[in-house]
Amino acid sequence: MISLYLLIPLSALLVVLIVYIFLWAVRSGQFDDMEGPAHRILDEEEVNVNREKEKSESEEKG
């Protein structure tokens, strides 16, 4: 039972982390297009390179 005093705060920490990551995902637009990625995975390399490029650009900016 004593272990709960450690485990519950730990799980609380985990929840805070999860919530933080989820909110980041929502705000950075991960949920804006729910259909596209399923199709894009079948595309060839170049488009993905393009997306990487865009991503790194936006990171530089932000």
Binding site: D32, D33, M34, E35, G36, E46, N50, E54, E57
Partner: peptide
């Protein structure tokens, strides 16, 4: 469109 010179990215939202 991504191949065109000067376009750094062109993405379409499926929805």
């Amino acid at each position: 469109l991504s191949k065109q010179q000067g376009i750094s990215s062109f993405t379409i939202n499926y929805a």
